[in-house]
Amino acid sequence: MMKWRALYEKSKHFLLVSLLMIITFCFAMFQGSFVSWFVFFTVSPFLLYSLIFLLVKEDVYRVERKIEPSRVECGQSAKVTVNVERKTYFPFVYMTVEELVSSEELVKSKMQGTSTVKFVGFTKKFEWSYTLENLPRGEHRFLGIEMVFCDFFGWAQKRVFVEKEQMVLVYPRVKEMKYVALQTKFDVGTMMSPYSVVKDTSMAVGLREYVPGDRFSWIHWKSFAKTQTLQSKEFEDRQSQELLLMLNPDASPLFEEKIELAASMVTAIVRGRGDISFVSTGDKTKVFPLIQSDKQLDQVMHHLAAIKPLENATINLRGQQSFKHIATLLYVTSELSEELLHTLANVVKSCICFVVSEQPPILTDNAQRYKQVQVVYVNPNDYYHLFAEVMKP
């Protein structure tokens, strides 16, 4: 049945044109009047053109798609310009061009301008542009371009599909946050904070071999002038090496807001020269250790752009090597439970749990007994002063 349907789709236009030629000729022969022959000779050029139209093989030589800007964040717009060059000079009357995508988010967003009508004629090269408005976060893939060539009256049509895959990566929106360096402490002292985000670069205690990713300001140039070997300064380490940011991947109405908060926090701390790592949990655990360079930050943002919510996600925090050398775990979630607090309290010595919610969470008496877990309410619409809120007693 499918074979017959495919054969019919390929031959229906040829059968239609042939049938119209037979009908008009028979009408002129049997009628025999001036009007009937006038109709036949008037329609014949269009029918002959349609017949040649169906016999000519049309190929597309080149398709290029340019997307501007190259980096797009959630909610922004992107301009897409498509250039098409065909091989033949056969004069088609017009054609419709449509972009084919595999992203449900793009389909739901009702893309405007992804299809257009072009009057071809003898033209071999043409282009058109359209704008994708309010792009959602994620990986969106273009499959190709479908072109439908038509004759004067639509009696004959020819479809040409050109495969042109291209991925558009829409990063999560990064909101500006006022960075306030959390207080640090040495191994002694009583009036200090139990966590640290900034390495004390004012107290160099030694030298070590240069490691890719070390900051430019850490290089010891005097030793390089003598030995021609790059060495980095070793600084006084405050209580711990770094912070660890973790995101709850469980599906929720505020999942996109959690992504934006995590992206904004990582960006603010890295730009503030803090030491932070990121761990993505879910079906597979992915670790981004010690994010310092722009390249490492872009890898995290790429992951946050592609991450998808998980239904009934199970988060296994035990046995993770990433927790063994951190001072404080920064955990981003939208739902708070006593079971989660119990798990966090047993994994790390210090944890700040950021709860993204429309209303501040209500802690039970049992939940308040986990002193090593600090619960911070986050308004999804405004967390510019979030770091300052954390420092409040």
Rank of each mutant, 00 (worst) to 15 (best):
M1Q: 05
M2C: 03
H13F: 15
F14W: 12
V17E: 03
F25S: 13
F40A: 04
L48Y: 06
L55R: 10
K57Y: 00
A78I: 06
K79I: 14
K79S: 15
T81G: 05
V82H: 06
V82C: 06
P91V: 03
T96A: 04
E98C: 11
E104T: 11
L106S: 05
K110C: 05
G113A: 01
T116C: 11
K118T: 15
K125H: 10
F126V: 04
S129M: 09
T131R: 09
L132I: 14
N134R: 10
G144I: 09
E146K: 13
D151W: 10
R159K: 15
V160T: 13
F161I: 09
F161G: 09
E165C: 11
V168A: 11
L169V: 15
E176A: 15
M177N: 06
L182Q: 13
M191T: 13
Y195D: 15
M203S: 11
L207W: 15
V211K: 10
P212C: 04
G213A: 00
S217N: 04
A225Q: 00
T227W: 08
T227F: 11
M246G: 04
N248K: 00
N248L: 00
P249R: 01
F255M: 02
S264E: 07
M265D: 01
V266F: 04
G274M: 00
D275W: 00
F278G: 02
F288H: 07
Q292V: 00
K295H: 02
D298S: 11
M301F: 11
H303V: 01
A306H: 08
P309R: 00
S334F: 02
L340D: 01
S357M: 05
E358T: 12
V373T: 03
Y377K: 06
N381F: 03
